[in-house]
Design a protein around this nucleic acid. Sequence first.
DNA 1: TTGCTGACTAAGCGCTTGCTCAGCATGGTG
DNA 2: CACCATGCTGAGCAAGCGCTTAGTCAGCAA
Lengths: 208, 208
Amino acid sequence: MTSTPIADLWPTLPGADTRPEAAYRLLQAAVESFAERGFHATTTRDIATAAGMSPAALYIHYQSKAALLAEISQAGHAATLALVRAAAAGGGGPAERMRRLVEQFTTWHARARTVGRVVNYELHALPEDAYAVVAALRLDIEREVSALIEEGVTAGAFQVSEVRTAARAVTSLGIDVSRWYTDRSTEAPEELGRRYGELVLRMLGARV
Amino acid sequence: MTSTPIADLWPTLPGADTRPEAAYRLLQAAVESFAERGFHATTTRDIATAAGMSPAALYIHYQSKAALLAEISQAGHAATLALVRAAAAGGGGPAERMRRLVEQFTTWHARARTVGRVVNYELHALPEDAYAVVAALRLDIEREVSALIEEGVTAGAFQVSEVRTAARAVTSLGIDVSRWYTDRSTEAPEELGRRYGELVLRMLGARV
DNA sequence: TTGCTGACTAAGCGCTTGCTCAGCATGGTG
DNA sequence: CACCATGCTGAGCAAGCGCTTAGTCAGCAA
């Protein structure tokens, strides 16, 4: 999915249907540039050229370079939260749901690593109001994981001394995948997800 | 140690004794700026002003802005590798050494998070030759962890199906600490290190 | 035909960037 | 004293930045 890094999260974007195709191309070019070079090292000329337009065309579809980043970041976070919620809310006991959560969380960060890098490592470049929205979403993700661990501990399925630290470790493992995973990685995203699911369950002291 | 983020690694810098104090101040200002805003969003005026000098003074002590980054990155990686090697080479069985390694690796990434952020998240801004040096150091760190896990598996101290994946997870957990740890974190670096040591040993299937 | 709209471009504005350079103060050395 | 190396500054240059402006053009409704 490297060729279309935002294909997965495109449907979650507001107004995705009505938006002209050029806006989509700009968004895609922005994701790739921001992920590879970082927000500040990316120029509006980079983005526009990659989308096959002149720099001025960018401003017809987006208010600013920062607005592009905000849109990517918010959509990416919303998609991640949705994924986490779906996995945590599905059937099964705490261990089964946690395995599913970690598998999907990890797989997403490996497959959508391009979006993942922008989402996780360009937060500091967000305008203040966009950052506030995104920070709330990140908190929700963290809370979802914490709640599931808490539930597992209460049910006797997990053995964890510090729930918050454990939750941090779980999300941290997944997020960092988007940093180190590359095209050259030999493990497929799903395979990595399965292995990480196993490791996390052991980490949480789940009875296997 | 936020006030003197490079105090720990300063002695490891080449020519630290002979270097004028102004060079030290510039280095420190650069670490703080790069960590907070990123390399590209940091201006030479930012660095020089924070060090109490005019922008021109920077170029008496360093060839370029990128040379500052290279120096920070190389020193930081060298210090980390030394820490990992020392922990892995100390006394005790695989489990004891792994616990020590994770404790110190984690503690370092929490306490020296300012340097850690530059070291781990500004790699893309490094000039090619400096990147090559740093990449080699990173590979050495990864290898050191892999070797210890391998040894533990052979000795029957660990139960791990994929050594490389497990090694990735261990280093990944530590590195990501420098991303999320803040002044407001309630856990002290050493406390976090102890907890992470515990989690990792469980993850590796160590007999506890 | 006329009038209007939305998507786009060529040109470029005002500003900031990394970096340079001539010159100045200081302090050790003959 | 003269001499000079060292550390630094004020002024500023060339390049590149985000973004704007004036205007082109295809498509469409009346």
